[in-house]
Amino acid sequence: MKFITLLALMLFLTLVVSHIFNRLNLPAVIGQLILGVILGKGVLDIVKSTHEVELFAEIGVILLMFLAGLESDLKLLRKHLRPSINVAIMGVILPVLLTLVTALIFNINLKESIFISVVFAATSVSISVEVLKSLNYLSSNSGAVILGAAVADDILAISILSVMSGTLTGNFSAQKLLLLLGMWIGFGVIIYVAHRWIIPQIMKLSEYVDATHAPTIMALVVCMIFAYLADAVQLDAVLGAFVAGIAISNAPKYNEKINHNIETIGYSVFIPVFFISIGINLEFNSFFHDFWLILILTVTGIIGKLFGAGFGAKISGFDLKDSYIIGSGMISRGEMALIIAQIGFSVKLLSDEYYSAVIISIILITILAPFFLKHSISKKPLNSN
Results as ranks from 00 to 15, higher is better:
residue 79 K to D: 08
residue 81 L to C: 00
residue 82 R to W: 14
residue 82 R to D: 02
residue 82 R to M: 10
residue 83 P to N: 07
residue 85 I to D: 05
residue 85 I to C: 05
residue 86 N to V: 03
residue 87 V to L: 12
residue 88 A to L: 10
residue 88 A to E: 10
residue 89 I to M: 13
residue 90 M to A: 15
residue 92 V to F: 01
residue 92 V to S: 15
residue 95 P to M: 12
residue 95 P to G: 15
residue 95 P to I: 08
residue 97 L to P: 01
residue 99 T to A: 14
residue 99 T to G: 14
residue 99 T to M: 15
residue 100 L to D: 05
residue 100 L to N: 03
residue 100 L to Q: 05
residue 102 T to M: 04
residue 103 A to D: 07
residue 106 F to S: 07
residue 107 N to K: 14
residue 109 N to H: 11
residue 110 L to K: 10
residue 110 L to N: 02
residue 111 K to F: 00
residue 115 F to T: 00
residue 117 S to Y: 09
residue 117 S to Q: 09
residue 118 V to L: 08
residue 120 F to P: 09
residue 120 F to E: 12
residue 122 A to I: 10
residue 122 A to E: 11
residue 122 A to Q: 02
residue 123 T to D: 02
residue 125 V to M: 11
residue 125 V to A: 02
residue 127 I to G: 01
residue 127 I to V: 15
residue 131 V to T: 10
residue 131 V to W: 07
residue 135 L to I: 05
residue 135 L to A: 03
residue 137 Y to A: 13
residue 138 L to V: 13
residue 138 L to K: 08
residue 139 S to E: 10
residue 139 S to C: 04
residue 142 S to Y: 12
residue 142 S to I: 12
residue 144 A to K: 11
residue 145 V to E: 12
residue 148 G to L: 04
residue 148 G to Q: 10
residue 153 D to Q: 09
residue 154 D to V: 08
residue 158 I to H: 00
residue 163 V to N: 09
